[in-house]
Amino acid sequence: MPEANTAALEFLLSRRSRPAKTLTTPVPTHEELEPILRAGLRAPDHGKLEPWRLIVLEGRAVMDRLADLAQVRGEALDLDAEKITKGRSQFDMGNLAVVVVESPVIAEKVPEIEQSYSAGAVCLQLLNAALAAGWGANWLSGWPSHDRGFLSDGLKLSPRERVAGIIHIGTEKAAPPERPRPEMEKKVTWVSR
């Protein structure tokens, strides 16, 4: 019988993302963030392609710049005021975030969709590592994450790159209530033959 890591399993069974609007300062220092980043980079990576990279957004100056860019891009796209406000809000509230950038590699044996899944795995690894380290964390995206103008002007992404997620990390000011979870009976199918 394998030896169980009960503490890790219990963490996974009870983990809960923290709403980004409840995150505040202090945020992790570079030294505190480094093991979280290392854990994120240990995500499943079929073919050892590393089809992703990370951009750490830290401090008010970069967050304010990105919030303003979301405003400008939203207006240029003729989005309604509510959508613009929502698009810029994660940067207005944010103090530290890690952007997971999909950087697909041309590889005959590894389809691009599997590379996208790997980038999503990096997002989840970062989220769980931040929570395990005692920080509050939330995985967001939003329309700016998919707007080519925002991506090229704000994050300097190449035309082939996309944002898989933006992981906000900070100190939680309020613990969120538990939410309903999927029922196994409705989501799991057992196949024995």
Rank of each mutant, 00 (worst) to 15 (best):
A132Q: 11
P104T: 06
L127T: 07
S192F: 04
Q90D: 05
W52S: 06
E114L: 00
T6A: 10
L127P: 13
T171P: 13
R16H: 10
G149M: 01
S141P: 02
P111G: 02
A39Q: 11
L79F: 04
S14E: 14
E3R: 04
H146Q: 08
P19K: 00
E112Q: 06
L49D: 12
E34F: 13
R162Y: 00
E82P: 05
L9A: 10
M63V: 01
I36M: 12
A164N: 08
T24M: 01
R60L: 15
H168S: 06
A4Y: 09
V188A: 14
R179A: 05
N128S: 04
M93H: 12
A81F: 03
E58K: 10
I169L: 06
P26K: 02
I166W: 03
D153M: 09
Q115M: 00
V62M: 13
V101E: 07
L9S: 06
A70R: 03
R148V: 05
P182R: 03
E75I: 02
T189L: 14
T171Q: 08
V105H: 08
L69G: 03
A132M: 08
M93T: 03
L131M: 07
V98S: 08
E82A: 07
R60H: 15
F91E: 04
L126V: 07
R18T: 00
Q115T: 02
W135H: 13
D153F: 01
R60D: 15
S118T: 05
R16P: 00
R53S: 13
H30D: 15
K83Y: 01
L66Q: 06
I167A: 03
A61L: 10
V105N: 06
G59T: 11
E183N: 15
M63T: 03
V62Q: 13
K109N: 11
H168W: 03
A164I: 01
L131N: 08
V163K: 01
R179P: 04
G40R: 01
L124G: 09
E34D: 07
G165V: 01
V101H: 09
E114C: 00
I36V: 15
Q115S: 04
Q71Y: 00
E183K: 15
N138S: 14
W52A: 04
N95P: 09
L126M: 09
P35V: 15
V62A: 14
S141K: 02
Q125T: 09
E50N: 08
M63I: 06
A97R: 09
G94Y: 09
M93K: 11
P111Q: 00
E58Y: 07
P176K: 07
L155K: 09
R18N: 02
F150L: 04
I84P: 00
V122T: 02
L69T: 00
